[in-house]
């Protein structure tokens, strides 16, 4: 009788084997308190070292938006999008969340090796925890965004409530991104060097500070492609809801749902596939 048969006969299970997907998700769900608590503690610790503490979570994107507004606003002159300040703030705030989750996800496994090597728990909780931390930053930014809309005389409508489902879809999408970037950096550490570059490129190509329809009006094919750009979809939806002069379309909603569920599903499966690999020494 082989040792394997002997072990099975006595009801022993193989250690470190990747559980089935549903079982894996159930186990992760059981420890959701861990992800929540770790996200909270981490963001507290991150803020505690700075004098302005958690104010930075709103201060930084505001400064960013103002600088972009000043530079591109002057550069673009009369081709500036209508309602420029609310337009720009919506874009910059939402994008800083999505790119933040992508970057934080990338470091979530490689940056917590101490934890990975000493305790066994579904590793998925690490990128999820990193995304939750970004959500903590997003919430005060959303409040600030609403304030900007009010200050720049956007009419307050019931449609603003649609910001809630938009945010939810965006969080799902970003969680998927974080899961994907978490596994990728485990395989190829070099990718961490590329991430700021990728974030920049997407920033310049997703209509964060310019009006896509106006800039690409002579390039119908490019415009057609951009319609599927998830970042552009989320930002356009939020503008359509709150910034005067912009509208949402059914297509945008369908695309947002599609991207949210697709990316999250893909991210979960992609990350889970390599579960046995995290924490390896090489």
């Amino acid at each position: 009788m082989s040792l394997a048969d002997y072990a099975r006969e006595h009801g022993l299970k193989r250690v470190g084997a990747r559980p089935a997907l549903l079982e894996y998700l159930a186990e992760a769900w059981k420890r959701r308190d861990f992800a929540m608590t770790m996200a909270r503690f981490n963001s507290e610790a991150a803020n505690a070292r700075n004098r302005l503490g958690r104010w930075w979570t709103v201060l930084l994107p505001t400064v960013q938006a103002l600088v972009y507004g000043l530079i591109f606003g002057v550069l673009m002159g009369s081709s500036r999008p209508d309602n420029y300040i609310p337009f720009l703030f919506t874009g910059v705030f939402l994008y800083s969340f999505i790119s933040g989750a992508f970057g934080a996800g990338a470091g979530s496994v490689t940056g917590n090796l101490g934890l990975v090597r000493s305790l066994s728990f579904p590793r998925m909780l690490l990128p999820v925890q990193a995304t939750i931390q970004q959500v903590f930053n997003l919430l005060p930014q959303m409040v600030l965004l609403l304030l900007t809309w009010v200050v720049f005389a956007q009419p307050i409508t019931w449609a603003w409530l649609l910001l809630v489902p938009i945010t939810l879809l965006m969080v799902m999408f970003s969680t998927g991104l974080a899961l994907i970037s978490a596994r990728l950096t485990v395989h190829v550490q070099d990718l961490t060097k590329l991430i700021p570059f990728v974030v920049r490129i997407v920033f310049y190509t997703s209509g964060i500070f310019f009006n896509m329809e106006r800039v690409l009006k002579h390039y119908p094919i490019a415009l057609e492609i951009e319609k599927y750009n998830p970042i552009y979809v989320f930002v356009s939806l939020a503008r359509g809801v709150g910034v005067a002069g912009y509208t949402t379309t059914t297509f945008m909603w369908v695309a947002a749902f599609g991207w949210a569920f697709l990316t999250l599903g893909l991210g979960i499966v992609f990350f889970w596939k390599a579960e046995e690999r995290y924490g390896r020494e090489d």
Binding site: A4, L12, K13, V15, M38, R117, S118, L119, S120, G279
Partner: peptide, 25 residues
């Protein structure tokens, strides 16, 4: 916690490891 290249380890429950050096957070 470490992937193995050959063979297998079987256990009746999830073993808990207390190692050196690892600072949790």
């Amino acid at each position: 916690l470490t992937p193995i290249q050959g063979g297998a380890v079987y256990a009746s429950a999830k073993p808990a490891l207390l190692g050196v050096g690892a600072v949790l957070l």
